[in-house]
Amino acid sequence: MKYLLLFLPMAAGLYPLAANVMKESYMTVMVNPPTSTVELLIYGNQCMDLSLKNQNFLGAIMSVPEPKPFQENWDVILLPFGSAQRSYCVFATVPVQWHFLISTYSDVANVGIRLEWDPFVAAY
């Protein structure tokens, strides 16, 4: 009986469920000129991680208006080859429709855009 009780915590530690889950993601690139705005309409989870990576040797000024009501606008200055990340969360049923409008004020920009979220199970 003692051996069984000692073995159960070790067996439970062998298979962590949350650590092996892969995140879903969507990637695109904004190159200005000709495009100074990228519009993304994504069906994702309740929390989304938005990453911006400057792929240019010049700095870029980026702007992301609120994707959902009551969230702040995000204005960020990306240094050459720098990156920035922000998480957005909302309490809603999944899948959640997210609308991101990412724009730049810079004359020349080459910015990689990546959205990541945990996969969800929709119950119908």
Rank of each mutant, 00 (worst) to 15 (best):
residue 33 P to V: 07
residue 118 D to F: 12
residue 20 N to R: 08
residue 105 Y to R: 09
residue 80 P to S: 08
residue 7 F to P: 00
residue 27 M to Q: 14
residue 10 M to C: 14
residue 9 P to R: 05
residue 1 M to D: 03
residue 66 E to M: 08
residue 23 K to S: 07
residue 7 F to H: 01
residue 15 Y to T: 12
residue 21 V to F: 01
residue 63 S to P: 00
residue 85 Q to R: 11
residue 73 N to M: 09
residue 10 M to A: 14
residue 48 M to Y: 05
residue 7 F to G: 08
residue 18 A to P: 00
residue 99 H to E: 11
residue 68 K to H: 15
residue 108 V to N: 06
residue 100 F to E: 07
residue 84 A to E: 14
residue 119 P to M: 04
residue 88 Y to K: 06
residue 87 S to I: 05
residue 87 S to Y: 04
residue 57 F to S: 13
residue 8 L to Y: 12
residue 5 L to C: 08
residue 74 W to D: 05
residue 2 K to S: 11
residue 52 L to D: 04
residue 40 L to C: 12
residue 79 L to S: 09
residue 81 F to G: 02
residue 14 L to R: 01
residue 70 F to L: 06
residue 59 G to I: 02
residue 32 N to G: 01
residue 46 Q to N: 13
residue 108 V to D: 06
residue 1 M to R: 03
residue 26 Y to W: 15
residue 108 V to S: 04
residue 31 V to D: 12
residue 72 E to Y: 11
residue 4 L to K: 10
residue 109 A to Q: 01
residue 42 I to V: 15
residue 53 K to C: 06
residue 95 P to N: 03
residue 82 G to N: 09
residue 22 M to K: 13
residue 70 F to N: 09
residue 99 H to V: 08
residue 4 L to H: 12
residue 24 E to I: 01
residue 49 D to Y: 07
residue 107 D to C: 01
residue 8 L to I: 15
residue 63 S to E: 13
residue 10 M to N: 01
residue 1 M to C: 03
residue 118 D to H: 07
residue 1 M to F: 11
residue 76 V to T: 11
residue 62 M to W: 06
residue 1 M to T: 03
residue 43 Y to I: 00
residue 50 L to Q: 05
residue 94 V to Y: 05
residue 100 F to A: 09
residue 27 M to F: 14
residue 14 L to V: 14
residue 75 D to R: 11
residue 107 D to I: 03
residue 49 D to W: 07
residue 5 L to N: 10
residue 98 W to L: 11
residue 120 F to R: 00
residue 14 L to M: 15
residue 44 G to F: 02
residue 100 F to M: 11
residue 28 T to D: 15
residue 44 G to V: 05
residue 54 N to A: 06
residue 82 G to D: 13
residue 107 D to R: 12
residue 55 Q to V: 01
residue 105 Y to K: 12
